[in-house]
Amino acid sequence: MSDERRLHDRHSTDLDIEVFELHSHRRLGRVVDLSSDGFMLFSDTPLAADELVECRLVSEQVIEGVGEIQLVADCLWSRPGADGQHGWAGFHIIDLSEEQAAALDILLQHL
């Protein structure tokens, strides 16, 4: 039986998309895969699960005028990397304005 929890396909990305906490500007990590409802992050330090994060997804490459997306995401899971320093985390997007959702769709079309 397949796992049907995801509503949208995740796309691995060749784009360099970094994630920053909105208010502290702290770098949270780099997006590994992305969908319209969530993303997986490779982080410099392990993150806490069940944490709501207001963040900015910043693309190194501006695509059709889109270089940054602001959203609120819930960290569903987090696990340390093999080296014990980095980590992996899965996020579900829970708050995204209509304008930011349109910007996300533009990025997804280029993955």
Rank of each mutant, 00 (worst) to 15 (best):
M1L: 08
M1A: 08
M1G: 06
R6D: 06
L7W: 05
H8S: 09
H8A: 08
D9Y: 10
D9G: 13
H11E: 07
S12V: 15
T13W: 12
T13A: 08
T13K: 13
D14W: 12
D14F: 14
L15K: 14
L15V: 11
L15E: 10
D16W: 14
I17C: 14
E18M: 14
V19K: 03
V19D: 01
F20A: 05
F20D: 06
L22A: 11
H23F: 12
S24Q: 10
R26F: 10
L28W: 01
G29E: 06
G29Q: 04
G29C: 02
V31K: 00
V31W: 00
S35F: 03
S36A: 10
M40V: 13
L41F: 00
L41M: 04
S43K: 08
D44C: 06
D44K: 08
T45K: 15
P46Y: 07
P46E: 04
P46H: 03
L47A: 01
L47F: 00
A49N: 07
D50V: 06
E51Q: 14
E51A: 12
L52Y: 14
L52S: 07
V53L: 03
C55G: 01
R56I: 01
S59M: 06
V62H: 03
V62M: 05
E64A: 09
E64Y: 03
I69A: 00
Q70N: 05
L71E: 01
V72C: 03
V72N: 05
A73K: 05
D74T: 01
C75E: 01
L76N: 07
W77Q: 00
W77Y: 03
W77E: 00
S78A: 11
G81K: 07
G81N: 04
G81F: 08
A82C: 06
D83M: 11
G84F: 15
G84K: 14
G84R: 15
Q85E: 11
Q85N: 13
G87W: 01
G87M: 03
W88L: 03
G90I: 02
G90K: 09
F91Q: 04
H92R: 14
D95M: 13
D95P: 04
D95A: 15
S97V: 08
E98S: 15
E99T: 15
Q100S: 11
A101H: 04
A103M: 14
L104G: 06
D105E: 13
I106H: 03
I106M: 07
I106A: 01
L108R: 03
L108S: 05
Q109Y: 07
H110D: 07
